[in-house]
C-alpha cells in the first residue's frame, strides 16, 4: 500500500530524514520507535504532505501512485490519515461542522454527492460512542480548551469518521492516562481490518501492549536501523535505545 524509498527530507537546510525505506501492506500494523529527535514525527509529517519539510530525494507511493507532489488534502483523499501529536485548536469551527466539511470535501473529490444529513448524524453518533465521546463535546470548537486526552480521542474519532486506508498515529499515547489509552487503543483495534493499515509512531512500548504491531522499526538519526517483530519493542523497553545505537555502530 505505502512504499517509501530512500526518503530524504530537510527543514531549513538541515537534513532530518536520511534515507528511509519502508513498506506497509494492507492488514499490517507497523510501529516506528526511536528516541527524541530521531525523525519519527518528521516522517509522519512528510507522508501527510507538510510543506514545512523539503523532500530532497526518494519517493513515496500510495497504492503504486507517486504522491510526493500532491497537496495534503489529495493525500487524504487517497486514504492517508495523520493523527497529530499536537492537534491544532481551531476556535469557531465545531467538531461536528468540521467533520461534515471534511467528509463532504473528501466525497466531492471522489465525485460523490454530499452525505445525507441523517446518515452523517448516525455515523457521528456511532463513532462518538465508539470513542466514548460525550455528545456535548461535538458542538464545541475543535480542540479548543480540550485536555490532552480529549484531543487525542478526538483525533481517533476523526479517523473513525474518515475511515482511512492508512492511519499514521503520531505519539497518540503521549499525554493519555491509562483509561484514555485503553479507549483510544480499543477504538483503533475496532477500526483495524484486513484492508487497512496502521503506523504507530511512539517513544514507548506502552501503547504496543494494547495495539499489537506486526512489525517494529527503530529509527535513529533519520534512518531505520533495525526492524523486527513485536518482541523488538519489549527488547527496547528493557535495554533502551543505546543498545541499538551500539549495535549499529558495530
Amino acid at each position: 500500500m505505502l512504499k517509501i524509498n530512500n526518503l530524504h527530507a530537510s527543514v531549513e537546510g538541515k537534513e532530518i530524514l536520511r534515507g528511509i525505506n519502508l513498506e506497509v501492506n494492507p492488514g499490517e500494523v507497523h510501529a516506528i520507535m526511536g528516541p527524541n529527535g530521531s525523525g519519527k514525527s518528521t516522517l509522519a509529517s512528510v507522508i501527510a504532505g507538510n510543506e514545512d519539510f523539503e523532500m530532497t530525494e526518494g519517493s513515496i507511493t500510495m497504492e503504486n501512485e507517486e504522491i510526493t507532489d500532491l497537496p495534503p488534502e489529495e493525500r487524504a483523499h487517497k486514504g492517508i490519515f495523520l493523527s497529530f501529536q499536537y492537534p491544532v485548536e481551531i476556535p469557531g469551527v465545531t467538531v461536528t461542522n468540521f467533520m461534515k466539511t471534511s467528509i463532504n470535501e473528501s466525497r466531492r473529490a471522489q465525485g460523490l454527492e454530499e452525505m445525507p444529513a441523517n446518515e452523517m448524524l448516525k455515523k457521528i453518533r456511532e463513532k462518538s460512542e465508539l470513542l466514548e465521546i460525550d455528545r456535548k463535546f461535538l458542538s464545541r470548537s475543535l480542540n479548543e480548551g480540550f485536555s490532552g486526552g480529549e484531543k487525542k480521542r478526538n483525533e481517533i474519532f476523526q479517523m473513525a469518521m474518515l475511515e482511512p486506508k492508512l492511519a499514521i498515529l503520531d505519539e497518540t499515547d503521549s499525554g493519555l492516562d491509562i483509561d484514555a489509552l485503553r479507549v483510544v487503543a480499543n477504538g483503533v483495534n475496532k477500526l483495524k481490518n484486513k484492508d487497512n493499515a496502521v503506523v504507530l509512531i511512539t517513544h514507548y512500548q506502552r501503547l504496543l501492549q494494547y495495539i499489537i504491531p506486526d512489525f517494529v522499526h527503530v529509527i535513529l538519526d533519520g534512518k531505520i536501523v533495525k526492524s523486527g517483530g513485536k518482541e523488538l519493542a519489549f527488547e527496547l523497553e528493557d535495554k533502551g535505545y543505546d543498545w541499538v545505537k551500539q549495535e549499529v555502530a558495530v
Binding site: G49, P87, A109
Partner: peptide, 9 residues
Amino acid sequence: FYLQTRGIP
C-alpha cells in the same frame, strides 16, 4: 495544514 490533512482543499 491540519484541515488539509482531513481532506479539506
